[in-house]
Amino acid sequence: MAIIVNLDVMMAKRKISSNELAEKVGITAANLSILKTGKAKAVRFSTLDKICEVLECQPGDILEHI
């Protein structure tokens, strides 16, 4: 797929752990791992909204089209 997820880069910038992010976003650590490893087939707007809110960033900072 031409979309890559740069979630780990943003998480490193914000110095937040996977478990903490998963808890704040309201998803399981397993689902966050699926998202981070690029195995996810789709992301809900509500999940993306929460992630952006917690990481204080834009969707473009997390998702990239190559």
């Binding site: 998803i27 689902n31 966050l32 699926i34 998202l35 195995k39 996810a40 087939k41 789709a42 992301v43 809900r44 999940t47």
Partner: peptide, 8 residues
């Protein structure tokens, strides 16, 4: 189902 399972 696989698509639904991998929708986060």
């Amino acid at each position: 189902k696989s698509e639904n399972d991998f929708t986060i």
